[in-house]
């Protein structure tokens, strides 16, 4: 897999460096008129550069809510979120958009590719919003697609790609602006088990190159591919521990039967 990441990130060691993500006593309410949903009830968390964190928990435990906060798509009702030491609450809309564009890469369960838009154009989109020159946009989008193994499918539309391929396009899109954090909310939720492991292999490779990865999943065997696992229940962190006996996705793939493609 080709290297796409900044050299600085590759040398980051987890211990004494300042955390890339620091969350302090974050609450989130959804105001539904008569009732209030208390989706996050005091979350505290630090994530160091280069970590690979899996967030687990039952449906409705607040995982997606938390990811949306980390992804700067939403703001906490109370508490603080420091991204690379900066309190996100202090930032304006423009700066948040720019952070989403350059610092963060987001991968969704439902892929969220633009329909009737080629893989290459989908991947190019964030570079357009980063206002990169045309040649560099194309160059980067092509490299990102090659990196996820889709060099041959650049001109395909999402409807012409399998679920796993669509998710790779989404990953390429998340990586094209060379972010320092990759956020993925149930990226394998719509995929079969072999394809899920293939996606985890990509994540492990990226993480080995120094990229910080935060992954939401409700499948324990997917969470195993991370280095650290966190469990949410009722809007709070109930468990936070390193992953023991972490498998290498590449190894696992060799043992799995190849179905098609």
């Amino acid at each position: 897999m080709a290297t796409l990441l900044q050299p600085a990130l590759r040398t980051a060691s987890a211990a004494e460096v300042q955390p890339v993500i620091r969350v302090e006593d974050v609450h989130k309410y959804y105001d539904l008129g008569e009732t209030k949903v208390h989706a996050l009830r005091g979350v505290n968390l630090e994530i160091a550069p280069g970590e690979f964190v899996a967030i687990m928990g039952a449906s409705g435990s607040g995982k997606s809510t938390f990811m949306n906060l980390l992804g700067c798509l939403d703001t906490p009702s109370s508490g603080h979120y420091y991204l690379e030491g900066v309190d996100v609450a202090q930032l304006g809309k423009k700066e948040l958009a720019s952070i989403r564009n350059r610092k963060l890469g987001f991968v969704f369960q439902g892929f969220n590719l633009l329909a009737r838009t080629t893989a290459l154009e989908n991947v190019e989109l964030p570079t357009l919003y980063a206002r990169l020159p045309k040649e560099e946009r194309l160059e980067r989008a092509k490299r990102a697609l090659e990196m996820v193994g889709l060099g041959e499918r650049m001109e395909h539309f999402p409807s012409q790609l399998s679920g796993g391929q669509q998710q790779r396009v989404a990953i390429a899109r998340a990586l094209v602006n060379r972010p320092s954090i990759l956020l993925a909310d149930e990226p394998t939720g719509n995929l079969d088990s072999r394809t899920s492991v293939e996606i985890m292999q990509i994540f492990q490779d990226l993480n080995d190159q120094g990229l910080t990865v935060v992954l939401v999943t409700h499948e324990a065997d997917i969470a195993h591919y991370a280095r650290r696992s966190i469990v949410f229940r009722d809007g709070k962190i109930r468990r936070d521990e390193p992953v023991m006996n972490r498998p290498e996705a590449a190894e696992v793939l060799r043992t799995l039967p190849t179905l098609e493609d």
Binding site: K93, A97, S98, N101, F106, Y129, A130, A174, N177
Partner: peptide, 16 residues
């Protein structure tokens, strides 16, 4: 609406 959501999520500014 969904397309707009995607564009904003990957960093489109309001002005874009």
């Amino acid at each position: 609406t969904r397309e707009i959501g995607i564009r904003v999520a990957i960093g489109a500014q309001e002005a874009d």
